[in-house]
Amino acid sequence: MGLLNALDNPINADGIILGKVEDLFNWGRAKSNWFLQFGLACCAIEFMAVNASHFDLMRFGNIPRSSPRQADYIVISGTVTLKMAERIKILFEQIPEPRYAISMGSCANSGGPYWQHGYNVLKGIDRVIPIDVYIPGCPPRPEAFEQAVLKLQEKISMEEIFKKRERVAQEDKMLESMLKAEENNFIENVNKHI
């Protein structure tokens, strides 16, 4: 999978690595994720604890940035109210691509304890922005957060970079032709009924 895993391959003897440039890129990208320093509610206190001495998030290469322009991912740490949701959307859109999002805690996942009577609470942040990793818990333990960071690294290290555009273009073409066929079918059906 990753770049260093290529060393396990018997072809790559004597410290020489034969691998894809993509793996090199992904290895670099996965191991230095900068996050947006941004807290919402109770989970933000646990998020602080993750950053502090006992759990030390920086050893995973995660450094807090105050501006979304410099960040790689955002952590939604707490209850998202309807008033705050639009702000979070703006913040997320300000992060340059490729960007990621971690949803921390039950509130951000689904509304949590405020699901039933919380008239002002968004029932899950994934209704507003796409989420890569969900962490359960109210609030989640710091260890759970660290695992989420590792999961995110795993996801990044498996990403396609070079052939992605071609593939996406092909997929788009297929989708277009499918839509067209459907449209034609529909028109034919309509014509039949007329």
Partner: peptide, 25 residues
Amino acid sequence: GYLHRCFEKHCENSNYNQIVPFVDR
């Protein structure tokens, strides 16, 4: 109002023991 979590509304709909977690928050 960016973190208004409807505390009083929840209290109206929960019994006395169920309110304790909301008080925590």
